[in-house]
């Protein structure tokens, strides 16, 4: 069960809220202070991408963020409800679609920031999963 779960409507203004919540929970979980900026940026990128996918596809479901504190790591999952986009395929629009380019740039930023990172393509949508080690408090 996640420590904190957040659902927000797919609007850009709520991405900041997700960043703040994720950073606060990560800090409590014992993620190194130096890594909190990475957590904030990575979760922001994942949520921005999900918001873009929902908006481009006309999906009205919320974006779901699960923050889970384990013994040795802190995990974040950001789930969208748009099937078939996470592996880089682009059924929603042309290759020049700026939102898609930004989404891919977001993935590039996450992969540059986070060592433990994967993109899972599910039937109902994609999940970006990432984790950071925690130090015992």
């Amino acid at each position: 069960m996640p420590t904190v779960e957040l659902l927000f409507s797919a609007q850009p203004e709520h991405v900041r809220t997700a960043r703040l919540v994720a950073a606060a929970v990560a800090r409590r979980a014992g993620v190194d202070e130096a890594a909190l900026d990475e957590v904030r940026l990575a979760v922001g990128e994942a949520c921005s991408r999900a918001v873009g996918l929902h908006r481009n596809s006309g999906v009205e479901d919320p974006v779901r963020v699960r923050l889970t504190e384990d013994e040795k790591k802190f995990s974040i999952e950001v789930a969208d409800e748009v099937p078939g986009t996470s592996s880089g395929s682009n059924p929603g629009g042309g290759a020049d679609e700026p939102a898609d380019d930004e989404g891919e740039m977001g993935l590039a930023v996450i992969s540059g920031l986070v060592d433990d990172f994967e993109v899972i393509d599910g039937d109902k949508g994609g999940i970006i999963r990432m984790s950071w080690p925690t130090v015992s408090l």
Partner: peptide
């Protein structure tokens, strides 16, 4: 205080 890939774009 904060910059993401949208800002880079």
């Amino acid at each position: 205080d904060f910059l993401d890939s949208t800002g880079l774009g």
